[in-house]
Simulated assay, not measured.
Amino acid sequence: MKSTDTKANVRLLKTLALAISTSGKPFVLTGFNYFSVSLTAVLKILQGAGSYFTFLTSMR
């Protein structure tokens, strides 16, 4: 889709450039700047918590 509004085009290009530059960096969570936790570890923790929750609700 083409826009004749040059300001909208410039905003779009800046947003696109920002999205490209931020997606090139790995996502890392830090715990009070003492340790870092990868996204994979966070997902495994959440998956384990969900499994444990399912187990506890099935025991009722």
Rank of each mutant, 00 (worst) to 15 (best):
R11M: 14
Y52V: 02
G50P: 00
K25R: 10
I20P: 01
F55P: 00
G50N: 10
F55M: 07
G50W: 04
L13C: 05
S58F: 02
G48Y: 10
T40F: 08
Y34P: 00
L13V: 04
S38P: 08
K14V: 07
L16F: 15
F35E: 08
L56Q: 11
G50D: 05
L56V: 02
R11T: 06
K14E: 15
F55E: 11
L43C: 05
L16S: 15
A49F: 08
A49M: 08
K44Q: 10
T22V: 12
T30H: 15
T57S: 09
S3I: 06
R11W: 09
V10T: 09
A8Q: 15
F53D: 04
A17V: 05
V10R: 11
N9T: 09
Y34L: 13
L13P: 01
L56H: 04
T57L: 12
M1N: 03
A49E: 04
R60I: 08
T22I: 14
T22H: 04
F35K: 13
L18P: 00
G31N: 11
K7N: 11
N33S: 11
K44T: 08
T4L: 13
Y34R: 10
A49H: 02
K7G: 01
T54I: 03
K2F: 06
A17T: 08
A41V: 03
L12W: 11
